[in-house]
Simulated assay, not measured.
Amino acid sequence: MNTYRIPEMAKKYTEHDMIQKHTDLPLFPEFRTRLLYAFLNKHSTLAGYSELYTLVTSLVQLGLDTHDMVSVTNDAKEQKSARSRQLKVLAGDYFSSRFYYLLSHSGHIDLIGILSAAICEANRLKMNLYLKMKQLKLTADEYIGQLVEVKTQLFLSFANLLEERFYVVWPEVLRLFTRCEVLLQEIDRSESSQPHQDSWGFWHVLQQATREEKKLLQSEEPDPAKWRPLWLKYKVTPQLHQMLDTCMKELQDKLQSFEPEKLGKELLSIGEPFRRYLSAPRATQEV
């Protein structure tokens, strides 16, 4: 089996001097990338392309995620902020261009079409999510579910390329891993000093809040600092911990009975950070 080295390979593109100097980037899609690499490496004919396929998919995902970091307004007058915004746009385009370049120069034109269709679907789902958020027509469960769907689209597109024995299990395993990943990120958000409107906590509180509390959340000039007591009241962080624990147990049960057993053990090792996080001692969570 080849050694997994996709993040190191991606650094050739992500550690560009201009990007590092003027802006920040989203987190590398580590769990989904490792999953895709593990499954492709078990393919009788595609194993030789596992690094290429996984690398370009991770770059496309980084491109999409980088564009998501661009603010929807352009009212920042300060030069540094404006430059960071411009670099995010250019960095996202740059990562996407590397995907086209690497696949076209290696002759894998079919995969360009497959991933391009997945990009369109991911953007369609993202726009639907944004519209529901703007209209406040979203539940907390729907928020998590739709976020998982957006984040898995590029990787789901490989289902038809995998060997038949993995065709059914790939989407299920991918979604469970991605749900754990999303929940872990939501926990980090819930523990931040400034609660976010684009978070599970917001939609959870909105569902449970009183009329006056909903007015506070929906004000035209929201003050996230004033939301903190609501995050405490409705136990946002503890509930997210419980959701992550439930998801991780479901994932472990799935992988422990996985065929082939060797791949199941490999996938369990990929999910080890989730298990370690849940088992780590921590102070009693109040938010």
Rank of each mutant, 00 (worst) to 15 (best):
E78R: 08
E30P: 09
A91Y: 08
S50A: 15
K42I: 01
S50K: 12
D17S: 12
Q79S: 07
N74A: 06
M18L: 09
L62Y: 10
H16C: 00
E78Y: 00
M18R: 04
E78N: 07
V70R: 04
K21S: 11
S84I: 00
R83T: 13
V60S: 11
D24P: 02
K21I: 12
A82S: 08
E51G: 12
Y49C: 08
G63M: 04
E51H: 14
Y37C: 04
L52V: 15
R34G: 05
H16W: 01
R85V: 03
Q86N: 10
D65N: 10
F28E: 02
A38K: 04
L55D: 04
H16T: 01
Q20E: 14
T33D: 03
G92K: 14
S81Y: 01
L40R: 01
N74R: 04
H67F: 11
L40A: 00
G48H: 00
E51M: 10
Y37W: 15
L27F: 07
A76G: 11
L40M: 00
L40C: 00
Q86W: 03
V72C: 00
T66H: 09
T33P: 02
K80A: 15
T23H: 09
E30C: 10
A47Y: 08
L25D: 12
Q86I: 10
K88G: 12
E30G: 11
L52K: 15
S84E: 07
P29F: 05
R34D: 02
K21Y: 11
D24V: 13
S44E: 13
G92A: 13
L40T: 01
S58L: 02
L35W: 01
G48C: 01
D68W: 09
L55T: 06
Y53F: 13
V89Y: 00
E51L: 10
L55A: 03
T54I: 04
S44C: 07
L46A: 07
H67A: 13
L90A: 10
E78F: 00
V70H: 01
Y94R: 06
V89I: 15
K42L: 03
T66D: 09
E51S: 15
D24F: 09
L46H: 04
Y94I: 09
L64A: 07
N41I: 08
H67G: 13
T73D: 15
E78V: 05
Y37Q: 08
H67K: 14
D65W: 00
S44M: 06
K21M: 12
H43F: 07
H16M: 00
M18V: 08
T66K: 09
V60A: 14
S58N: 04
L36N: 06
F28H: 03
